[in-house]
């Protein structure tokens, strides 16, 4: 299976849309990268860099205006349903239903992913045990704390045991304890051989978690590689400095021009 090596293959992915105020916006500009199974690929970039757009394209919620991406061998442009069924997606925009209990929520999505009743039940029991969700299995979404909601989201993301998982700024708005638990869970998923994309604007998370990272800014990948490679290439041991340097170096020529 050739795609076992490249579970996610992104090639020249481009997304542009028109905006009333700013005219044509290129949110993602010919971006290419690959991700292997058992690897966490970090996307690092400031707010509005195009991370969310890129991940939405991979999850087929948005359609690309150029280029293509294949996930587990399925193209996001021609087989979006198949792509969606083999990814788990979690972001700040994927909320939990207010009027559903934790159990119902996970069960509902399990069914939507086409799981049969018996394996689904077993899987939910397993997930609720590992994520320690049994005490609030019958609590409605509106009554849950942020930590509980996050756990439900994770359970929802991985209920169908997808080979590919995408986390878009999953820790934003979480306290340290919950964030830490979440990062642990993601690391555990990687050990199971999952192929994971993780986007954030927090350096520490990237350094701790990711095997390879891509620094993305204004819709383009400025640099990509392992943490060590990047530090070596730019001769900058501190990741935060490196990131800042890259961004401002890219900003400067444009800013310096008088027109």
């Amino acid at each position: 299976m050739w795609y076992a090596v490249r579970m996610i293959h992104v090639e020249q992915l481009t997304k542009s849309f028109s905006d009333l105020r700013r005219g044509l916006i290129v949110a993602l500009d010919h971006v290419s990268f690959d991700v292997q199974p058992g690897e966490i690929f970090g996307m690092l970039g400031p707010n509005g860099a195009g991370k969310t757009t890129c991940l939405r394209l991979l999850s087929t919620v948005l359609r690309p205006t150029g280029g293509d991406a294949t996930i587990a061998g399925h193209s996001v442009t021609t087989a979006p349903e198949k792509v969606r069924s083999c990814i788990g997606f979690m972001s700040g925009n994927t909320g939990v239903y207010d009027r559903m209990t934790a159990y119902e929520m996970v069960e509902y999505f399990g069914r939507l992913y086409g799981m049969a009743e018996e394996p689904l039940k077993a899987r939910i029991e397993e997930l609720f045990t590992t994520l320690q969700m049994h005490d609030f299995r019958d609590v409605l979404g509106s009554k849950m704390s942020t930590g509980m909601k996050q756990k439900v989201s994770i359970a929802r993301t991985i209920v169908h045991d997808p080979p590919v998982m995408i986390f878009d700024e999953p820790t934003s708005g979480l306290d340290v304890l919950v964030a830490r638990a979440l990062l642990k869970a993601i690391a555990a998923l990687k050990d199971q051989g999952k192929c994971i994309i993780f986007s954030t604007h927090i350096m520490r998370e990237v350094e701790k978690l990711c095997d390879r990272i891509a620094i993305i800014h204004k819709g383009r990948i400025l640099a990509a590689g392992t943490v060590a490679e990047l530090e070596e290439r730019y001769a900058e041991p501190d990741m935060e400095e490196l990131f800042f340097d890259l961004i401002s170096r890219h900003e400067d020529p444009a800013a310096a021009q008088p027109w």
């Binding site: 999850s59 087929t60 919620v61 349903e81 198949k82 969606r84 069924s85 990814i87 997606f89 972001s91 925009n93 994927t94 909320g95 939990v96 239903y97 999505f109 939507l112 992913y113 086409g114 929802r156």
Partner: peptide, 8 residues
């Protein structure tokens, strides 16, 4: 978006 990313 939660609903949009399911296979339906």
């Amino acid at each position: 978006e939660t609903l949009l990313i399911c296979p339906a």
